[in-house]
């Protein structure tokens, strides 16, 4: 079975739904109409562009280009994590924490999957490497952003408690243990929830895509299970390392809580 190719008219029809939504937004004075149209256009441009890039990448199949593409994706994900935080660690170190955490989790898990599990030859075959990495980055990004945002917010809000515990002679690890545990749970909850709902409530996007593309459902499901495992593991490792690194940054060598390295951009 071949996929039915979509025409411009088909996409246009779907886009008109968004126009309808923006009209509704004006009528209800939600103030979202500009955003809906802007981000709708932006999404279209981004995806068209990536379609072209992927076509080129798949045709060339060069390791160098795959690595370049992965690096760009990683850096963009790091920027996105920073943008999603209410209070962020200022300067390069905040950015590096998110990038390192995602590198550790997404990259290692992707390479493991390519080399050991799927055994693609060569291992960097872009048709496998890029979508896998993309799915892992997208999900670990969400987890890490949630966990880091909560970490800085909690340390800010519960400063008195943390400092009181330090005053009782506790190390920074003890003094922040409850908070760090809570943040790690927060970061891992979405993926645990989506594992629970997978197949019952939601049909995951990748599997749906493969089925639409003509893959037999059971094969598609197996890939989806693999991806779910990888995402859950990657998110978990990423969240744990992000919280650990941010802890090392927010407390100094004398076990002082250094909230002055945080900057809040919103109220």
């Amino acid at each position: 079975m071949d996929v039915i190719a979509l025409t411009g008219v088909d996409l246009g029809l779907a886009a008109s739904l968004l126009l309808l939504l923006s009209v509704l937004s004006v009528m209800l004075s939600l103030g979202l109409e500009r955003k809906i149209i802007f981000f709708g256009c932006r999404m279209t441009a981004q995806l068209l562009l990536i379609g072209l890039v992927l076509r080129f990448l798949f045709a060339s199949g060069s390791l160098l280009l795959v690595l370049l593409m992965s690096t760009i994706m990683l850096l963009a994900a790091g920027r996105e994590v920073q943008a999603r935080q209410k209070r962020k660690i200022i300067g390069l170190s905040g950015y590096l924490i998110s990038v390192c955490a995602m590198f550790v989790s997404s990259f290692s898990v992707t390479v493991l999957a390519l080399v050991v599990i799927i055994q693609v030859k060569p291992w960097y075959t872009p048709q496998y490497a890029i979508p896998l990495l993309g799915m892992l980055l997208g999900n670990t990004m969400t987890g890490i952003a949630l966990a880091l945002d909560r970490m800085t917010d909690q340390l800010h809000g519960r400063r008195g408690e943390v400092e009181q515990r330090l005053l009782l002679g506790q190390s920074w690890q003890e003094a922040s243990s409850d908070i760090r545990r809570d943040c790690m749970r927060t970061g891992m909850m979405p993926i645990i929830n989506s594992m629970a709902a997978a197949g019952l409530v939601s049909l995951p996007g990748m599997m749906t895509g493969q089925i639409l593309g003509g893959t037999p459902p059971v094969e598609a499901v197996k890939y989806q299970i693999l991806i779910m495992f990888l995402i859950a593991a990657g998110t978990g490792f990423g969240v744990v390392s992000a919280i650990w690194m941010s802890g090392l940054h927010l407390f100094d060598a004398r076990h002082r809580l250094r909230l002055e390295i945080l900057k809040s951009d919103k109220v």
């Binding site: 519960r158 008195g160 408690e161 400092e163 005053l167 009782l168 409850d178 002082r256």
Partner: peptide, 28 residues
């Protein structure tokens, strides 16, 4: 070490902080 120092030199802040449910659990 910082933990040694604060066990020897400590302060009682004007507004105390509590993080467990039961008062007695806060005593080291």
């Amino acid at each position: 070490s910082p933990t040694q120092w604060r066990s020897k030199v400590t302060m009682v802040p004007a507004d105390s902080s509590w993080w467990y449910d039961r008062a007695g659990d806060h005593f080291p």
